[in-house]
């Protein structure tokens, strides 16, 4: 396999009756990848495929040099996921517990996990809320917590599926800034790679490359402005 971070060769995914992805081949080296397209075009399936949540029916997938079919466990340790529904991503009853939850697989000592969780909460401005029940949070705060849970393990790749769909403009902005940051963060670590599925074309424009899906097929790859233009042209009836 090549060393490209994301590589798909003739990949199809059949979900029940429907062909969700139809013969997709693509190679993506860029750091921040926007995925756009209409409802049901296959972009969410594409995201889940990269994260090992959906298996390819045919074809070969390589993400970060891993095969999601056979190395799902390793891949999921390298990938952080953010979904759109803030409520369905919170797993533990309190904010601090939920942030620490993602560290379970690392089997850290309790004190160390708690320390890392509180550092991460600090980074996302949630420290004040650490001991509050998670359901007391606003939608935007919940989504920040979900992001915190996804980023706390410093994943090499973050996959975000419509992370701002339930949020108002201000919170969308906040989440997007965290997701799209490049260069080094406070801890001096390199920023994560990002696959961002979104309907918000302004967000897509801030990425390094965009891919366009239509009815399960990948119809365009290129600079965000060009791909967005093409998408918007296709919307004119």
């Amino acid at each position: 396999m090549s060393s490209a971070p994301i590589l798909l060769e003739a990949v199809s995914v059949r979900l029940g009756e429907r062909l969700a992805l139809d013969d997709v081949s693509v190679r993506l080296d860029q750091q921040r990848i926007a995925v756009i397209g209409a409802n049901g075009s296959g972009k969410s399936t594409f995201a889940r495929l990269l994260g090992g949540l959906v298996a390819p029916t045919t074809g070969a997938v390589s993400v970060l040099g891993l095969d999601p079919s056979r190395q799902a466990k390793e891949l999921r340790r390298a990938v952080g996921f953010v979904f759109s529904n803030p409520d369905a991503q919170i797993i533990m009853p309190t904010v601090a517990e939920d942030a620490a939850f993602s560290l379970r697989a690392d089997k850290l000592p309790k004190a160390e996990a708690a320390a890392r969780a509180s550092a991460a909460l600090e980074e996302f401005g949630l420290s004040e809320l650490a001991d509050r029940p998670a359901h007391d949070l606003s939608g935007g705060q919940k989504q920040l917590l979900a992001l915190c849970g996804a980023l706390i393990r410093r994943p090499a790749l973050v996959i975000a599926d419509e992370p701002t769909a339930y949020l108002d403009a201000r919170n969308s902005r906040l989440i997007a800034d965290h997701l799209l940051r490049d260069g080094k963060d406070q801890a001096g670590d390199r920023a994560h790679r990002l696959v961002l599925v979104t309907h918000d074309l302004a967000l897509a424009a801030r990425c390094d490359v965009a891919v366009l899906f239509d009815d399960g097929r990948l119809t365009a790859v290129g600079s965000p402005t060009e791909v967005i233009d093409r998408y918007e042209a296709s919307l004119v009836c």
Partner: peptide, 20 residues
Amino acid sequence: STAGAASGTAPGVSSGTPER
């Protein structure tokens, strides 16, 4: 679960859920 969600087996009640 992902399969079912994508194949549209949930009529009527899925209001407000973004596409997947």
